[in-house]
Design a binder for these strands. Sequence first.
DNA 1: TAGCGTCCCGAAAAGCGTTTCGGTCACTTT
DNA 2: AAAGTGACCGAAACGCTTTTCGGGACGCTA
Lengths: 336, 336
Amino acid sequence: MSTDAPGRRQVTLRDVAQLAGVSVATASKAINGKAEVSPDTRRRVLDVAERLSFTPNALARAMLEGHTGTVGLLTHDLEGRFSLPILMGAEDAFGAGRSSVLLCDSRGDAIREQHHLSTLLGRRVDGLIVVGSQTDARPPLGRDLPVPVVYTYAPSTDPADASVVPDNVTAGRIAVEHLLATGRRRIAHVSGDITYAAATDRAAGADAALAEHGLERVGPVRYGSWSEAWGRSSVAALLEQDVDAIVCGSDQIARGVLDALHDRGVRVPDDVAVIGFDNWEPMIAGCRPALTSIDMNFQMMGRRAAERLFASLEGRDPGGVETVTPRVIVRESTGG
Amino acid sequence: MSTDAPGRRQVTLRDVAQLAGVSVATASKAINGKAEVSPDTRRRVLDVAERLSFTPNALARAMLEGHTGTVGLLTHDLEGRFSLPILMGAEDAFGAGRSSVLLCDSRGDAIREQHHLSTLLGRRVDGLIVVGSQTDARPPLGRDLPVPVVYTYAPSTDPADASVVPDNVTAGRIAVEHLLATGRRRIAHVSGDITYAAATDRAAGADAALAEHGLERVGPVRYGSWSEAWGRSSVAALLEQDVDAIVCGSDQIARGVLDALHDRGVRVPDDVAVIGFDNWEPMIAGCRPALTSIDMNFQMMGRRAAERLFASLEGRDPGGVETVTPRVIVRESTGG
DNA sequence: TAGCGTCCCGAAAAGCGTTTCGGTCACTTT
DNA sequence: AAAGTGACCGAAACGCTTTTCGGGACGCTA
């Protein structure tokens, strides 16, 4: 059994030392730029290391130093278009800080999550980031974990845990304020599944912004599903009253709404403005006219989660829930 | 500085042994189910281990055994909707085989890729999977790597390397054969960027299938971009001749085509059948009528890549390019 | 019952690859 | 000549598994 199919045994520091005619200790110092090595010895060691393409064994180093430079990323679903940007942001932040990411997908299954957790703990990750699949709070990973944990997208039910979540209330507020700023006054709202905190939070923020301007929403918030079909089919009801703007709970819903308005000959943005949430590129790309949308800054969330994890490692993260502020991306559908 | 902010030092096998009143060696054997331990000693050790929630240090074990149970996943873009399913499939296969995935995103940058490569090598991954961003071949990671590598989505330019790629030629063939089987004869083709092998390969397969039935494509293959806009704007030209089916290079293009056909009052599938590629759920979901599409089986590609990597580890992978066969998902747009 | 061989539980030690600490030795400075 | 300096080496340590080995219990024979 030739397990070493490609390129034999990994070359170790001892090999380098031996070939350079010095001790392992000296070789180590030479390679790590320590001072107590004469210039030509260093040069000789470095040459040999180069020639053997020596790569120090990070595992051995980790055992000494007590930390691995490795972080566990525990996600609930990899398909989700929300977890992806978060993952990117985190990977970005870690990459810069020379940490590597150990990725685990629990497929939304608590058993699998626990299994992955113990695997990661066994690999001695320095910390964990948990990416939820909904914005609703989730039970913490466990009590007395030996490493810090940052929850993102979905906060932990324990408010003392470190969580980084999107600010859906502010998102709703921003959407309405943008519409008001562009002269709209009669604003209706169609959203997704009412059991999602994202839907109700956005609606609450939108209503609050309206109230602050002495206005009221036109009609009820029409909750349904997060689909284009729902957006399309709800247009008839939305147009029963006189409206000049429609807030849509997601880009998909918005796209359905745009579609139905187009079919009915309602002009966007001239007759009605439309705004969505999530700023999901591939969905936006096909919209006619181009859709104004609230970007939840998911990538920033990932980055913040990573930063807070670093802070925790140094014992200087206070814990608690942090929200990431969304921003509006203005396009044609609100008459920019 | 209290680096150990949460829950002190990790508990080691020595702690367990000490508390159980046995030697480390005995504790090890008790925990790993080795034979030479008396039943009640084992029970005692196991109890203590449980109580301290002892987790064996995978790093220490890795140093002994010579392999880490860790695999590097080097992707070019995390946004890409193609790399995701591949990643899922691989994660799936590894999870089952108790390997963990170290994720690195090179953002399409060769420098970053090399940097990640050396990091992964330093962490002594057992193997590597490289996920490309286009189906065009890419230069291999490097010569004489100490671990096996499997390239996926984009094959390595070295045909001896192990690669797993989608079979775009067969995909084109399957699309046309499905249309022929449902009675279509006058088939046009609109596709994306001509510089993508995916576009030209699919067209080649489609033409070959037509030729085998003594037919010819209606009009040229209209290459453009992978966007809905291109699909929409090319419909006029496509309809200049009498067609009863349109093969679209991607689901996005197909959606644009459907949209434009709808606006012109052309009925789908009654007048014209439409078929796309990629079977991309969120894009498909909004189509009216529901879009028939060729699923490239990306998840399967990821799984196969993982399986071949395992095979390589055991020295029993022959290398070479392997294609994954796509399948047609029939929906309304082809009149199923 | 003493003496001998056998068996098995469990302790001790080696080894994985690296960093670091405490020496050693030769050479220079005062 | 004593002290100081610089360059290098040996060994310990990290946490675990594995191999080796010691010693106690047990069974058999005389």
